[in-house]
Computed example of a mutant assay.
Amino acid sequence: MAPGALRGRVGAAWARVSKEVGTVAARISEDIDAAIERDPATDSRVEMALASPGLHALWAHRVSHAMWTRGARLPARLLSQASRAATGIEIHPGAQIGRRLFIDHGMGVVIGETAEIGDDVMMYHAVTLGGRANAKIKRHPTVESGAVLGAGARVLGPVVIGAGGQVGANAVVVKDVPAGATAVGVPATNRVPELHGEDVLFADPALWI
């Protein structure tokens, strides 16, 4: 290979790597900003980056998911299990997760293989996105952008939590939750709040316990 062609290939490879590194760095910064915005107990970016198990689990998942989709399934599972041991949060490498997910506290969270999560979703500890079938089908929930899942919520099967929907603490959801609605109880029932914006967050403290 001519020296000029070799330099061209090396330059192109370096450009790709630099672009990917820049994208990863930007995504990490975005995750930290989103976490600080939602967690009033922390206002330091360094503290959030070093001490948030939710962020650590999310970052590990991004790596394991990339491995999973490229066919390296055993290493992906091993990484996900190592992350589970370190953070108490279990996310299957096959799960599809959007941007700026924030898992507050995190202990006991389980996200199944065919779960799909949109952007700007927030969930508290002990949330389960579980399946109700053993077949290799879409068997886990879809959580659309802007949804909030309260502590201990169980969302089971291929149900859809609509955009901006909310699931109360310890609710068991086995049916779709419409966009903007709130699901509470066992089994959960849906209701559309009369309040809007930030007022909804404080209308029912049981949502966030």
Rank of each mutant, 00 (worst) to 15 (best):
M1I: 07
M1T: 08
G8T: 09
R9Y: 10
V10N: 04
A12Y: 03
A12F: 06
A15Q: 11
A15I: 02
A15L: 10
V17C: 04
E20S: 11
G22I: 04
G22A: 05
T23R: 14
A25E: 09
R27Q: 14
D31Q: 08
D31F: 08
I32T: 04
A34N: 03
I36G: 01
D39M: 08
S44Y: 05
R45I: 01
R45S: 10
R45Y: 03
V46T: 10
A49R: 00
L50E: 04
A51E: 07
P53N: 07
P53L: 10
G54M: 07
L55M: 08
L55V: 12
A57E: 12
A57M: 12
L58S: 08
L58T: 14
H61T: 10
S64G: 10
S64A: 15
W68N: 05
W68M: 09
G71M: 10
A76P: 01
R77Q: 11
L78A: 11
L79I: 15
S83V: 07
A85H: 13
A85N: 12
A85T: 13
A86W: 01
E90V: 09
I91V: 15
P93Y: 04
P93N: 07
G94C: 11
G94Q: 08
Q96C: 11
G98C: 09
G98E: 05
R99N: 09
L101S: 07
D104E: 11
H105Y: 13
H105D: 06
G106E: 07
M107Y: 11
G108S: 07
G108R: 05
V121K: 04
M122H: 02
M123T: 05
A126G: 00
V127G: 09
V127N: 10
R132T: 15
R132I: 13
A133K: 09
I137M: 05
K138E: 14
H140Y: 09
V143S: 02
E144A: 08
E144I: 03
G150T: 11
A151W: 04
G152F: 03
A153Y: 06
L156N: 03
G157E: 02
V159Y: 06
I161W: 02
G162Y: 03
G162W: 03
A163N: 01
G165E: 00
G168W: 03
N170Q: 04
N170V: 02
A171N: 01
A171K: 05
V174A: 00
D176H: 06
V177C: 05
A179Q: 05
A181L: 00
A181G: 01
T182P: 00
T182H: 00
T182M: 09
G185D: 08
V186E: 13
V186D: 12
P187N: 09
P187Q: 12
T189Q: 15
N190H: 05
V192M: 14
V192K: 01
P193C: 06
H196E: 15
E198G: 04
E198C: 04
V200E: 00
F202R: 15
D204C: 03
A206F: 12
A206E: 13
L207E: 02
I209V: 15
